[in-house]
Design a binder for these strands. Structure first.
Lengths: 342, 342
DNA sequence: TTTAGCACTCTTTTGTCCCGAGTGCTAATC
DNA sequence: GATTAGCACTCGGGACAAAAGAGTGCTAAA
């Protein structure tokens, strides 16, 4: 695979780096002045011409400089990138950014997404920990008035959801007890995705008690359970996309794409390596043809649990961004592991 | 003030409405064909010329049609708009959109903002109920493991905040009791904005008990209290701004402005009427010179409590948007009042 | 194998011209 | 006195051409 001569590699790397920095196609002369190579522009031209023929570079038009092709980016990411450690400054920024949310997994992921998006000027899509098999761990009902109560639901992965609930009739001690009975026997320990209004009703029907009174509570529990599964995806910094001139008006289309949940979850799931880079048309979706997606997994207590994904223009600063993503996912995994252990 | 002849009013209204609809400057002929007025284009030209001289219309350049000036929009909004009732369809959309969040004030505001933003294609900024005098009503501490607990905080305005909290040492019954004692004597009934780490520490110091063990809990309570005051602003649908060609690339700048919290809260606060329309440079901020801001207050239990604000291009469909905002604020006020009454 | 030199290509910019839309004015009409 | 028809005028935008600039590809020499 490594059929490229040393000098070709050096040139390819230089083209990628300069193009990433300036956004302008890079020409033979410009390349010399930026790298300080001691050959003439004609030599560079020959080499670049070779690289173009091999498919690593391409030309917007005859009389322009060269820009990396997708294959070129790919080769760069796989073989040429140096500096695989995170920058000390970025490290600090990340740590400071998430410090306020360390104890709470859901908020941690939200903060992490924002910080990473800010840092990289990309959009960040993350999934909260737990996969599809999130289990309901605890439910609390706290009366706060004659007709209303707060409901709190905690899952095995440390996600906490709460809401107020208003009853049509008075909230008596009896009703509370009945509620807890039902919860204990039919909800605790079940996967969140299994809780539906229908399943609840059949449960309620089979139990003695004031089914009618409890209906709003049951509905609220379902809604909380649903929000656990639904809100697994967190999208941060999507407005950053507008700051890249690469997208032009395409940014709007991309934003619309990101606001659809289903394809997005496909984008950041289903990777096998701990960190995966998909460049341009390597992505399954046409809407991402000018974007690169960097996805990394974090693990909680040793098991893969969720992912953090970055979406930005193909022309992104892989060299700095990849280590940041790597660092953040490790950190997040560690912190969540810590937060949910007993 | 009403120095305009009937025909001038009719023309001004027609210009505003047609320009709002098409985005193109409207000329004398086009105006005739769209209104069906039975005068010649020359007459219209004379009238439009007058209106321009009076400052109600302006010309992008000599040989273009007329567009409303800010003064023209103002006159239109104050005097010419008909149809001050909400459209039945919009009513349905709003009701359906917020139905899932009716019982929970915070989520209700969030949904309301999104629905309104969607409906109007504007950005929506709302404040959660309660003003600055939100009082802590209830705090619950529920152990979920040896070292961790969930903390739930409820305020007088029905805002519920919860998070996980991890302790450095074991969470004993004694610690729970001490915690509740402190909470009961020093936190419940206090304004959320008064709770700070410092005040907590002085409290803790004056109380017998394991101050060190309780520190994480206290910090978490502070953080929750702070998040009650901090997250009072909800911003929805900001990406809608990109769909208006009026803004062009200015949309990016506007978006950046909206992402700053402080000026934004000034924009939607400090109005005296129940519904206020600020057009273009009537706004205090330069960044809003091409935007109009519609702000309406909702009241909970008879008191002004929060506001819902819409931000969109000056060329917006005031005639439909204003009634929608009015309707939504009333509805939200009613629903929150209902949700937090005992 | 590298390099200097030069013709060539293609984009971008600038300038010019022309067309169309719409106005403003004047004189005629109701 | 208000309205209208007619017409000259203005200005922006598109089409087209020429010039400038950047960079290549090729050839021939080192």
């Amino acid at each position: 695979m490594s059929e490229l001569s040393e000098r070709k590699k050096q040139i390819l790397a230089a083209v990628v780096e300069q193009y990433v920095k300036t956004g302008e196609p890079v020409g033979s002369k410009g390349l010399i002045s930026s790298t300080g190579m001691s050959v003439s522009s004609a030599t560079i031209r020959n080499e670049m011409s070779d690289l173009a023929a091999m498919g690593y570079l391409e030309q917007p038009h005859t009389s322009a400089g060269r820009i990396p092709s997708q294959k070129g980016y790919r080769y760069y990411v796989d073989n040429l990138m140096k500096n695989r450690e995170i920058d000390e400054i970025n490290k600090r920024i990340i740590e400071a950014g998430i410090s306020s949310a360390v104890g709470d997994p859901e908020r941690l992921i939200a903060r992490a997404s924002e910080v990473l998006a800010d840092l990289t000027k990309c959009a960040c899509v993350s999934s909260t920990p737990g996969g599809d098999a999130v289990i309901i761990r605890k439910i609390e009902l706290v009366p706060v008035g004659i007709h209303s109560a707060m409901l709190v639901l905690l899952t095995s992965n440390g996600i906490l959801k709460s809401r107020l609930c208003r009853l049509d009739c008075e909230l008596t001690v009896t009703i509370c007890e009945q509620f807890y009975n039902i919860v204990k026997s039919c909800i605790i320990g079940k996967p969140a995705s299994d809780i539906s209004v229908v399943s609840m009703q059949t449960v309620a029907a089979s139990v003695d008690g004031d089914v009618f009174a409890m209906l709003p509570l049951m509905a609220a529990v379902c809604e909380l359970a649903r929000s656990v599964s639904d809100s697994r995806l967190v999208l941060g910094g999507s407005s950053n996309l507008f700051s890249h001139k690469d997208y032009g008006t395409g940014a709007i289309e991309l934003l619309e794409f990101l606001n659809k949940r289903e394809p997005l979850s496909e984008v950041i799931s289903g990777i096998s390596e701990p960190l995966n880079v998909k460049i341009g048309r390597e992505n399954l979706y046409r809407q991402l043809e000018n974007s690169s997606v960097i996805v990394a997994k974090y693990s909680v207590g040793g098991d893969d649990s969720g992912t953090i994904g970055l979406i930005g223009p193909t022309r992104m600063d892989y060299e700095n961004i990849i280590p940041s993503v790597k660092y953040l996912t490790n950190l997040v995994g560690r912190l969540i592991t810590q937060a949910i252990e007993e």
